[in-house]
Design a protein around this nucleic acid. Structure first.
Length: 317
DNA sequence: AACGTCAGCAACCGCAACGTA
DNA sequence: GTACGTTGCGGTTGCTGACGT
């Protein structure tokens, strides 16, 4: 007994939305809100669309507070930091960026930020050198995005990012309880409740936020405990066997399996020394590395070592 | 000018979580 | 406790337009 489909796909229109459809959906929601069932909404307003599609259209495009295009460096910074801390939890990341949707953030990461971060990609670097491809949208496109853009609530007076329409992320604040390395892979675990507060302290709210590469990546965020969901000791080792550390698959692939990609990220030469075995993702080195070694200048050249680790070694506990 | 390639983005898909009867 | 409907989320796909040859 399978689950009933959310809509009859044969009688549902797909593909891009027309202005008329947008207008219908928008005016209905502005009058009645989104409180009712999304599933029944299309019938009520005479749209041949799936309820899910209506919801998506509203959330990602029609909402009045949506901000399109033109991510600021500050936003870049926030996205990158959160990505290395919690992984691809786009809704959580988007919740910290007023006017941005998870889809927006996800697209932005996939199409731009990832490349911006890992310029080592040979082709991209070549392209940049030759100025063949823009890394940001063309003026025409930007203009289009601006045109599509809606009004949006600026940063709060205290300098923090705040969107009145979105709930603030309920996670422990920066010092330093984000469940990163101490609570298993963050992307697979829920944040503990009970503490409310903003995700960031002043550092991210500062208007003069420096480039996100400067202090972006705590190695503790790149490494996840292997083969165990139990909290890992802060003094964990990269070694073979249970309890060993590994990079998240994506980062591992970026940093270790494809050395070409490291071109533009020379700072990670030390990480490259950690030869990983396929599948088990453990090091082949007969010697294990202590946490201190991992955080040493060899593994963490200035780019990283300058970063205040979220989960410092044991002695700080 | 025509064509090919690729980046960017909107939309879709499927699964998991959640809510309720 | 369970079955079912709905919502939310993240990954993926496909279209469009910009750009290079």
């Amino acid at each position: 007994m399978g689950r009933a489909p959310c809509c009859d796909k044969a009688n549902v229109k797909r593909g891009p939305w027309s202005p008329e459809e947008d207008a219908k959906l928008k005016s209905y929601i502005e009058q009645h809100g989104t409180g009712d069932s999304w599933i029944s909404l299309p019938q009520k307003i005479g749209l041949k669309r799936c309820g899910k599609s209506c919801r998506l259209r509203w959330l990602n495009y029609l909402r009045p507070d949506i901000k399109h295009g033109g991510f600021s460096e500050e936003e870049d910074n926030i996205i990158c930091r959160l990505y290395v801390s919690i992984g691809s939890r786009w809704s959580v990341i988007a919740a910290q960026l007023p006017g941005r949707t998870d889809n927006d953030v996800k697209n932005y990461w996939n199409t731009r930020l990832k490349k911006k971060l890992f310029l080592g990609s040979g082709r991209l670097r070549k392209e940049q050198q030759h100025g063949r491809r823009r890394l940001v949208g063309s003026p025409k496109k930007e203009a289009k995005q601006m045109e599509k853009g809606r009004s949006f609530t600026p940063a709060a007076e205290d300098g923090s990012w705040r969107d009145p329409h979105r709930p603030q992320l309920e996670v422990p604040v920066q010092n330093q309880e984000l469940p990163t390395a101490t609570a298993g892979h963050p992307s697979t675990e829920q944040f503990p409740g009970g503490h409310s507060g903003q995700l960031f302290g002043d550092s991210l709210a500062q208007p003069d936020c420096h480039g996100f590469l400067d202090d972006l990546i705590p190695l503790s965020s790149l490494a996840v405990p292997l083969g165990s969901s139990s909290p890992s000791p802060p003094g964990g080792h990269i070694s073979q066997g249970a309890g060993a550390w590994c990079l998240t698959p994506e980062l591992e692939e970026m940093f270790c399996y494809n050395t070409v990609r490291l071109e533009g990220l020379d700072g990670f030469y030390g990480v490259d020394n950690m030869v990983l075995t396929e599948g088990s993702r453990t090091t082949t080195s007969s010697e294990s590395l202590s946490w201190e070694e991992i955080m040493s200048p060899l593994a963490c050249p200035p780019l990283i070592s300058g970063y205040q680790p979220m989960y410092p070694p044991q002695q700080q506990q």
